[in-house]
Design a binder for these strands. Structure first.
Length: 433
RNA sequence: GGGGAGAUACUCAAGCGGUCAACGAGGACGGACUGUAACUCCGUUGGGCAACCUUCGCAGGUUCGAAUCCUGCUCUCCCCA
């Protein structure tokens, strides 16, 4: 083995629950392990990045990773961690989502080349579920698991006993479907390990139980803790929504910003989870950061590692460049004019922006109208006035006050006006002839 | 099937005929502080410059005047069978 997979995850704080003997088994042999991805959206967000990284670790440790896309299970809806019945996705949406999820995963894991033994596989459980009839399923699978066993699962117990709307038969059955996936992969690929988030433990153990009873085999399980934030809020969400792994949904600039603005505490945890830096490197970064927290080595390195991994070095450089221009006190907007205009545009690609007609500001226009009606930067006149009262509005990094008229004088670098609310909310206005 | 309770802004939650755009808390945003942190402190949080307009489950009604009273509807919860 290239390295001890379990040990590696352990120091990174990525092991929540693990079945006995898993580590020993993985030290002895090349293991095929799988992780399931729910096609609940047409792309994956950084929550799923943890699972992708696990597959990468698996491969690096010399094992064989299998990425399972839940084409079939996605039609049912996993009740784990949900307090209410889920809505079913339509066939078209599901298909679109599956394609999206697949393409994201394949950006990170090489399914083609690689050494034979650890070559990754991508499967879709719809392929083996679609022709599985109800009668056969009931006889071959249902017979091996008791309802009592299924009822004991946390995800079921919560919904059956407590308040809420109860649970449909459909969702109740979910664990059997996922359990069967595991059995199927065990039988066809010799898959002996399933990894997932901590909320998946129940579903995974239904699988190992099924394998034990039906195939008289032994299969293993490992779950990772939920990635948390120090302030207790949900990881991966910002005011503007999820952070996606797709540049069309979350620009590289915003992606980079997400990581670079993480708190000290979060960054120290996340650098272990989201990068492949070794233990000494992580520790020395943490130490270095503590010596001079103001420099934020930790956040910068974390943002670099993750952004480069997800979007590539070039896109990362651009995002850093944009951040430098926007946040560095050394670079004033007046200097932008000296920069190459096309480069400037490229740098600001990920910054929220709008293009307006140049004639609109020819005669000068009140700041209130400019920020609301003309550019849509803020949502109402009242909000602009509020911002003015709070002294939080800036044009080209200079605070403005009520009564300000926006005109040609405010244009920098030929056709740009940089609006700003507070310290971190930027908005770029481009003028069109 | 019978009986009871309730639906208020992003969330929780007051209000029960005028002084209510609606107490309070959380969140969010902003300011000071800083490191594009954390903590703390302060401010803002329907729209309109304003008169004023829209908002308290939905639709009507009573009243000079309703989130507050009446009628119907929809939905939710609890108890008994």
């Amino acid at each position: 083995m290239a390295y001890n997979f379990v040990e590696e995850l352990r120091w990174r704080g990525m092991v929540h629950d693990i079945m006995p003997e898993t580590e020993e088994m993985m030290q002895k042999e090349t293991v095929t392990g799988y992780i399931g991805f729910d096609p609940t959206a047409d792309s994956l967000h950084i929550g799923s990045l943890v699972q992708i990284i696990l597959l990468m670790h698996l491969q690096r440790a010399g094992h064989r990773p299998v990425a399972l896309v839940g084409g079939a299970t996605g039609m049912i809806g996993d009740p784990s961690g949900k307090s209410a019945e889920r809505n079913l996705l339509t066939q078209d949406i599901l298909e679109k989502n599956i394609a999206g999820v697949k393409s994201v995963i394949s950006r990170f894991i090489d399914f083609e080349g690689g050494k034979k033994k650890s070559r990754a596989l991508m499967v879709n459980n719809y392929d083996w579920m679609k022709d599985f009839g109800l009668i056969d399923f009931a006889r071959d699978i249902g017979k091996h698991i008791t309802v009592n066993y299924m009822m004991a699962k946390e995800s079921v117990k919560k919904r059956v006993s407590g308040e809420g709307d109860g649970m449909s038969f459909t969702e109740f059955t979910y664990q059997l479907f996922q359990g069967y996936d595991y059995l199927h992969l065990y039988e066809t690929l010799g898959c002996k390990l399933q990894i997932g988030g901590s909320d998946q433990w129940g579903n995974i153990t239904t699988g190992t139980e099924l394998i034990r009873r039906k195939a008289r085999g032994k299969a293993y399980a490992l779950t990772t803790p939920l990635v948390t934030k120090a302030d207790g809020t949900k990881f991966g969400k910002t005011e503007s929504g999820n952070i996606w792994l797709d540049a069309h949904k979350t620009s590289v600039y915003q992606f980079y910003q997400f990581w670079v603005t993480s708190t000290d505490e979060d960054a120290a945890n996340w650098i272990k989870i989201f990068t492949f830096l070794d233990q000494e490197t992580c520790q020395s970064l943490i130490d270095e950061h503590q010596k001079d927290p103001g420099y934020r080595v930790l956040q910068k390195r974390l943002a670099e590692e993750v952004t480069v991994m997800v979007h590539g070095r070039e896109a990362y450089d651009t995002a850093v460049e944009a951040s430098k221009i926007l946040f560095s006190k050394k670079v004033t907007p007046e200097q932008w004019g000296k920069m190459d205009h096309a480069t400037l545009l490229e740098i600001f690609e990920g910054v929220p922006q709008v293009t307006i007609d140049r004639s609109l500001i020819k005669d000068g226009v009140d700041i209130v109208e400019f920020c609301n009606e003309i550019t849509g930067f803020l949502n109402s006149n009242a909000e602009v006035r509020r911002a003015l009262k709070e002294n939080s509005l800036s044009i080209n990094k200079n605070k403005v006050s009520a009564g300000k008229m926006v005109s040609e004088d405010d244009v920098i670098a030929d056709n740009m006006i940089l609006l700003q609310r507070g310290k971190t909310t930027y908005f770029l206005v481009l003028l069109d002839e």
